[in-house]
Amino acid sequence: MVTSAYILIKTASGFEKKILSTLKEFGSIENADLVYGLYDIILKVSINSSEELDSFIFDVLRPMEGIVETMTCIIAPEK
């Protein structure tokens, strides 16, 4: 079952555009936008499992230079 989520990313000043450009290369990212407010980037991702989502967040996103904080909002299934 595909897991979809919004991931909000806070970056260090000056890293926003570089991180956004890098993230747009990942196939699992449906949409990536710079935003104003508490967070700098919002991603919408679709990933095959919660384990892959964990791996993407902990092994790809958080170690990336310039990423200060992430918040993940898993999309609830419609019924």
Rank of each mutant, 00 (worst) to 15 (best):
F26C: 05
N31L: 15
F26I: 10
T70R: 01
D40W: 04
L43P: 01
G37L: 08
I47V: 15
D59A: 06
S46I: 08
A32P: 01
I75M: 11
G66I: 06
I41H: 02
L38S: 09
L20H: 01
V45L: 04
E51D: 13
D59G: 03
K44V: 12
E30L: 14
E25W: 03
D40G: 09
I42Y: 08
T22A: 08
L20I: 02
S49W: 07
S21E: 06
S28Y: 11
I41R: 01
I42N: 03
Y39N: 06
V45E: 03
E69K: 14
L38H: 10
P77V: 10
I29F: 03
L38W: 07
I29S: 02
F26S: 02
I47Q: 08
I74E: 09
A32T: 02
F26D: 10
N48G: 12
C73L: 13
A76R: 14
Y39M: 11
D54L: 09
S28V: 15
I41M: 01
E51K: 13
T70I: 08
M64H: 02
S46D: 02
D54V: 11
C73S: 14
A76N: 11
I74V: 15
L53S: 06
I75T: 15
L23E: 08
L43Y: 11
E52C: 02
